[in-house]
């Protein structure tokens, strides 16, 4: 095992620089260290001015997504040992505006999350006194996968459609819509289908499929989008028929 490894890290300080550059740092190598640990080593020992987001260091808070050697990764789950001999390139997530160093602006993503109405919508609410909405394990299984999204945005960074067309609502938001559509307690699938059928919705997706490959939680947003497209297409054909539902 090497005693140390080199990291090439994006630096961008908008108050001083007009565009990002790469800065290299030499950090000790350890078998149990991930890229995030190396960044923390840099911040604590080499350069206190390096900025990045992190919190739980166990792959559930979704803060520490970055590009590692060109691929979107949770840096808390990217071992240095998998990138030997280095240098390891660490950059901010693709396709998002860079605020500073490794920090990207996620305001756009937050707006998109809200746009798909990710909450339970029902015509009639059941009073709490009447207990829970019954939901069998099979019904739970229907949407479970899509409920595992940690909003780390790796899928947006893998999606060239989002890169080319920032208005595209994007993989995670559509998967979240599908999570609620498939929930037996929810009754607003049609409402969300209409939102997703708008110009910036699911039809923008050309099914590159990278979003599902990079997802650290196996949410499979590409699957969600194709399922919704199928529903949308069937819906449209029904509309054409004289005995159609509308």
């Amino acid at each position: 095992m090497p005693p140390s490894v080199t990291l090439a890290v994006t630096r961008y300080r908008p108050e001083q620089e007009s565009e990002p550059t790469l800065q290299t740092y030499e950090v000790p190598f350890r078998k149990d260290w991930v890229v995030l640990d190396a960044l923390n080593y840099i911040k604590d020992n080499l350069d206190g001015s390096l900025s990045f987001r992190w919190s739980c260091r166990m792959g559930v808070c979704g803060s520490c997504g970055m590009m590692v050697n060109g691929s979107p990764k949770l840096t808390c789950a990217a071992f240095l040992s998998d990138y030997l001999p280095g240098p390891i390139r660490v950059e901010p997530l693709n396709y998002f505006p860079i605020i500073r160093d490794l920090v990207v602006d996620m305001t756009d993503f937050m707006h998109k999350l809200k746009k798909v109405k990710p909450w339970i919508i029902r015509a009639q609410e059941k009073p709490l006194a009447d207990g829970e909405y019954l939901q069998t394990p099979d019904q739970l299984e229907m949407y479970k996968q899509f409920s595992m999204c940690i909003n780390c945005m790796l899928c947006y960074s893998a999606c060239p459609v989002y890169g080319l067309e920032q208005s595209f609502i994007g993989p995670a938001a559509i998967a979240l819509a599908q999570r609620y559509n498939l929930d037996s307690r929810d009754e607003a699938a049609r409402e969300r289908l209409e939102i997703l059928s708008e110009h910036d919705g699911m039809w923008q997706c050309t099914f590159v499929g990278e979003c599902s490959k990079v997802c650290p939680k196996n949410v499979d947003p590409a699957g969600a989008i194709q399922q919704l497209k199928l529903v949308g297409a069937v819906d449209w054909f029904r509309f054409l028929l004289p005995w159609g539902t509308r």
Binding site: W119, E125, L128, E132, L134, Q135, P137, L140, K144, D183
Partner: peptide, 22 residues
């Protein structure tokens, strides 16, 4: 108990019994 039920009504995917109860 009411708080937990409230969260169920808000969509929390609590694990379930075969009959659909939490």
């Amino acid at each position: 108990p009411a708080e937990m039920l409230q969260l169920e009504h808000w969509g929390c995917p609590w694990s379930r019994e075969p009959d659909g109860h939490v």
